[in-house]
């Protein structure tokens, strides 16, 4: 029971500085939910005709069969796309992207990667992203845009032919879609691990402070 008291004091002792504004938190968790639905249903669809010599374990797929997976995928895509568009628009309009993610310099990234690997990277001020964070967060936004564009190319290869041309052809768009998914999964592993290593960052994404 004493541990709860300690936690209470910690919450109260934190300065009331908002690290993550409400819109970021709401969109972050909607995105997390939509993304997981998209990944698990996407694995179901992948299994119907694997691109590589493996399938995803059935337990980690959504929908029960190809038809169910497709229904989930094409339902969750609306949540993902609308939320993602709102995030991009707000991110640019409020200047958050510019303030938080820029500049990204090679020397800054190298410095912070070295610091991170030797556990010397500080997390004292969560309002300022280090260079590794900037690179990863900016990168994952680009991957997010790419996975939506390649997905749209596969969904509407005739109506959105110019989009398909961007990737070369329909089969290439499929590979791009898969590689983007793999990149997002790799990001997720690092992202969740780091959030657990620095729990106050997770708290900031939940309560803002």
């Amino acid at each position: 029971m004493s541990s709860i008291t300690v936690a209470d004091e910690q919450v109260r002792a934190t300065p009331a500085k908002v690290i993550q504004p409400a819109w970021v938190r709401v969109m972050h968790w909607i995105n997390a939910f939509a993304m997981i639905l998209m990944i698990l249903s996407g694995w179901q669809i992948y299994n119907a005709s694997p691109l590589f010599g493996f399938s995803f374990p059935r337990d980690y797929t959504l929908g029960g069969w190809l038809g169910g997976g497709l229904l989930w995928h094409f339902a969750a895509m609306w949540l993902l796309m609308i939320n993602g568009l709102a995030y991009l628009v707000t991110g640019f309009a409020t200047g958050r992207f510019r303030k938080k993610l820029l500049p990204i310099t090679p020397s800054g990234v190298l410095h912070d990667v070295r610091a991170a690997l030797t556990f010397k990277l500080g997390h004292d001020d969560l309002t300022v992203y280090n260079y590794v964070q900037r690179l990863l967060y900016a990168g994952i936004i680009v991957v997010g845009v790419l996975i939506v564009l390649s997905g749209l190319s596969m969904w509407k290869p005739v109506q959105l032919y110019y989009l398909v041309m961007l990737f070369g052809d329909y089969p290439t768009a499929r590979y791009v879609h898969f590689i983007c998914m793999a990149a997002i999964c790799a990001f997720l592993v690092i992202h969740i691990l780091l959030a657990l290593l620095v729990p106050k960052s997770l708290r900031a994404m939940i309560i803002g402070r």
């Binding site: 541990s3 300690v6 936690a7 910690q10 919450v11 657990l196 729990p199 997770l202 708290r203 939940i206």
Partner: peptide, 12 residues
């Protein structure tokens, strides 16, 4: 990191 503590914090 006490997982339970973390969850309790967020629940509050």
């Amino acid at each position: 990191v006490d997982k339970r503590l973390l969850i309790k914090d967020s629940i509050k």
